[in-house]
Design a binder for these strands. Structure first.
Lengths: 340, 340
DNA sequence: CTGTTAGCGCGTTCAC
DNA sequence: GTGAACGCGCTAACAG
């Protein structure tokens, strides 16, 4: 079948260990022998078996990446950027798509990454038990979502500040009835929806606007959920004149609902989202931009650095990336009220 | 560190081979011994090292998936669906994001999947040389993009039929100047853009419409490219009244360009896309729907089936999935012409 | 600078 | 039904 290290050794007239040293760029091999071996290996199409190499060295040169849903733009983008960093550094990526609760549970009880990866990047927020399971792996850990966790390097954004800029923008435009579409039904230990909600409440309070619970709806972080949530908000006796959606996908769902109700944006209702989805620009959505790919790349880099310096203890670093409000065409002052 | 098979064997008072047999559900172990071993293994948090298992058995229980760009909706969706099938069958997924030509080249020369995977699913279209490299792996191969290739199971759609339904729809509405935004700059061996272009030309010819090369523009399969292409088409002396975009992302770029030019859709220009992107509905895009996730799942299933029946030769199966035109709000008859 | 010797942690014969 | 011995392909420690 495929060539083994001994085949190369024999063909090059050296021992297996010399082949191993030469091909991995270790010192202690004369240039001519190295060249010879490289040539023979290339000719035979030899690549070291990762399984055997891992077994012997204890290192796998593989990173495990845990994702709730690869198909979603946010996660796909983070994964894409992270993978580039990893592969550039010579690491392979083992992908685990842990969408459903059952699959997720199975993953954490069986922990198939055990002895298989040198580090783990998780794009889903592990609860206490799951965190402990990951820590038991004894490898560097990082995440790009959720708050700080012992043992994890976390790269994120300031959810509060982002939300504040969005909601304040609506307030400054003159809106008083400001709804919110949130992702409340997510895992309880996920702080993002909570942080964003608190910031929303704070801005309202600051502006002297009384909070109306009827103006909050759950959009489940999906387009469909956003559409449902907006429909709910429109059914309220005094519907909002502006809506803050905790994600662009929910904001787009809201836009769809508004179109179905023959309401114009921003004339009848203003909408602001969060993320700056690649298609936010297409629909002209005003939103809070966060550097999604950068977060993936940065988390990957921090992980790789820990892999390079096996000495130091896991630094539990915490990196905050910048956000900014992007004004487009879905926000405007409310229509003048009263009879006319 | 983590428990090994010998730790379990010792704790259970049996030999390592019995542990191996018991945990993998092989026959020849008494029920009580099996139960005992299972309990001990669970308590110790034991999982067999994949590296060692692979080395010993020759199987890796890992599938390699090659993707041009994970962040793109189409690929993310296919990957997501495929991963679910693989993981349900007990296989892990090694992801290779081969976006740039350099990375891609490095991958195919070094072929890091060698001895590492039991099968490969590629979402990028390998050229002859790359196909040969993959075949040299000696494992089942599948793809969800591009035409038939020796040695590959391919799951796809009828690009010609899809395009015909889209362009014919425009013709039936009364359009005579129908532009096309294509992804011509893709790899030469990728048949999709060619098939779609030919179908476009055929429908025009059938309808007795003379083809105007100025009405074709390259959109590079991206939103930005689509926007550029539409801008080009609008600069033509007699701009099109309708446009067929070979992908929804390019169609959305076209919509953006039209909005920037203060042209209304569909009153001034009709647009039809291809894919039925998850957000196509949000912007009301008329498009040719293809079952994206289903293609990934089906390809994965066919691969798994080959893995189950190691006997038979690779069947080089070719599966055609259904497509259908989805009418939304971006297409309408052209405005009545002439002075008014 | 290079070869030899030992495992890495399993699965897989073959005995019993 | 169970255990002992061997080897998968490679890296690491030790000689020379």
């Amino acid at each position: 079948m495929t060539a083994s290290i001994n085949d190369v050794a024999r063909a090059a007239g050296v021992s297996a260990s010399t082949v191993s040293r030469a091909l991995r760029g270790r010192s202690g091999v004369s240039d001519e022998v190295r060249d010879k071996i490289t040539a023979v290996a290339a000719q035979l199409g030899y690549t070291a078996s990762r399984s055997a190499a891992s077994l012997a060295s204890g290192r796998t040169f593989t990173i495990g990446v845990l994702v709730p849903y690869v198909g979603r733009w946010f996660f796909g983008t983070v994964l894409d950027a992270a993978e580039r960093e990893f592969s550039a550094a010579g690491y392979d990526v083992l992908l685990y798509n842990l969408g459903s609760p059952e699959i997720r549970k199975r993953f954490f009880t069986r922990l198939p990454v055990r002895k298989r990866v040198d580090a783990v990047l998780t794009l889903l927020i592990p609860d206490e038990e799951e965190s402990a399971a990951l820590r038991s792996l004894g490898v560097p850990l990082a995440t790009t979502v959720g708050g700080s966790r012992p043992g994890f390097t976390v790269v994120g954004i300031d959810d509060r500040a982002g939300t504040e800029s969005a909601v304040r923008h609506l307030v400054n435009l003159g809106h008083r009835r400001i709804g919110m579409i949130s992702g409340a039904s997510g895992p309880l230990h996920w702080t993002t929806p909570i942080d964003r909600r608190n910031a929303y409440l704070d801005v309202l309070a600051d502006a002297g606007i009384e909070h109306d619970p009827a103006l909050e709806a759950d959009g489940d972080y999906t387009v469909e959920g956003g559409e449902r949530a907006m429909t709910e908000l429109l059914a309220v006796s005094r519907p909002p004149t502006a809506v803050y959606a905790q994600s662009d996908e929910m904001a787009m769902g809201a836009l769809r609902a508004l179109r179905r109700h023959r309401l114009r944006v921003p004339e009848d209702v203003s909408v602001v989202g969060f993320d700056d989805h690649e298609l936010a620009d297409v629909v002209g959505l005003t939103t809070v931009a966060q550097p999604v790919a950068d977060q993936g790349a940065e988390a990957a880099r921090l992980l790789l650095r820990q892999l390079d310096e096996p000495g130091a203890e896991p630094p539990t670093e915490q990196v905050q990336m910048p956000i900014r409000l992007v004004l487009r065409e879905t926000t405007a002052p409310p229509r003048p009220r009263g009879p006319q």
